[in-house]
Amino acid sequence: MDERIARDAQEFGVYARTGGWTFALKVARSVRPGGQAAGETPKVSAKRFGELAGCSAERVMRFYKAWDAAADDGLVPQFEALEPGAEVELPDADVWLSYYVSRNSATSVRGTAITAAAEAEGIRPTKALEVAENPTALRAAILADPSTAQAARAALLDRIKEDPALQTELARDIARTDVLKKAVAQEAKAADRIGFVRQIAEQGELKTPAGQKLQAPAELRQEAERHLSLLDELDDGEEAGAWTTEAYGTVKDLAAQAVEQAVEGDPELRVQERRSKFYSSLEKATKVFEELTLDDADDIYEDDMVQRLEELQRSIGACIAALRKASDGPQ
């Protein structure tokens, strides 16, 4: 066996078992701790070690900090207990990523937040930091992979609840995108329809055209509950549009019939409905008439206008006479 191959295999085996701890040990036993003067130890500074290794001092310090954190947890000896060339038993390789952060961004406010979120999700912070530093790669994954797009959508929905600025930005994007604006309008309409069916099923309440509240018949509530159960049983990816339309149409027709029957069967309620309808029509007519402007009557005058107003005046007079006669009661 070639000695060079054997040496490579042995070093590979050591690294496979210990991972980054192998290199962290080299830093820990060769780089002097902060505050220790050069004359007190044969160890060198992180800058000098990096120059000898052909890498940056920042990279050296990332290994240094990983060892320091592990030492605080009692996994490895403190720096002061290590001399150049010392050998110690190293933790398993899978523990390394719990202490080592390969990016400078992890020490920033943004990096700290990403690290905390990654730990809360039960994933390695290095993965989350890598994604955050490569937005183009994230975009490519979202565009190419439906499951990644779904994960991104779920994450945005969670974040939007506590991010007013993002809420505004997304709302603005939707309003400016015709396809999204149309889709939102359709979903809002569907949600309103489902809400109508759910309100009848759960609260059993109907409203007359005049706004009077009525109790829904038991048969109507049962029908609404049946349609809701069908909607609830649909899979997440299954189209609910046709089911929603059918549920809304059926329940709405039955509700209208129930209201009509209730009004016709209750003389007092029927009078209230007629009174409310009259007031509503009167309010609309008054508003329309008040909006008429006759400042420039000379310019807009037509004989037909006067005739129609005279007819309206006669109708109003007849209406007033009928109301006064009703107020006087039977003669």
Rank of each mutant, 00 (worst) to 15 (best):
R4L: 06
G35N: 11
L214Q: 13
Q199R: 15
A24I: 05
A86Y: 12
S281C: 11
I300M: 08
V288Q: 10
G241Y: 02
A28V: 15
I194V: 14
T177Q: 08
M61S: 02
Q272V: 10
D298W: 14
A141Y: 01
V131Q: 05
Q78L: 11
E246N: 04
L220T: 10
E260W: 15
K65D: 13
R48G: 00
G329P: 01
L166K: 06
A132H: 03
W243R: 01
E310R: 15
G74C: 09
E233N: 12
T148N: 08
G237Q: 08
D253Q: 12
F12C: 08
K252H: 08
P125Q: 14
G20I: 01
R221L: 04
L170M: 10
Y248V: 01
L214H: 05
E302Y: 04
A38M: 13
R110V: 05
K182C: 02
Q222K: 03
E83I: 05
R275I: 15
R110Y: 12
E83C: 09
A191D: 07
A71I: 02
D296T: 09
S229R: 11
Q212P: 01
A86E: 10
V131E: 04
E225N: 14
I142T: 00
T136A: 06
A16M: 13
V197Q: 00
A155T: 12
I316F: 15
P146C: 14
A240M: 12
A69Q: 15
D328Y: 06
A321F: 07
G35V: 11
D163F: 06
V263C: 03
M61V: 02
S45W: 12
E11S: 11
I160E: 03
T126F: 01
A81P: 01
K26Q: 10
S281K: 09
A116T: 02
A240Q: 03
P77K: 04
F196T: 02
R110M: 10
G317N: 12
A210H: 02
K65T: 04
V88R: 07
A66T: 00
Q167P: 02
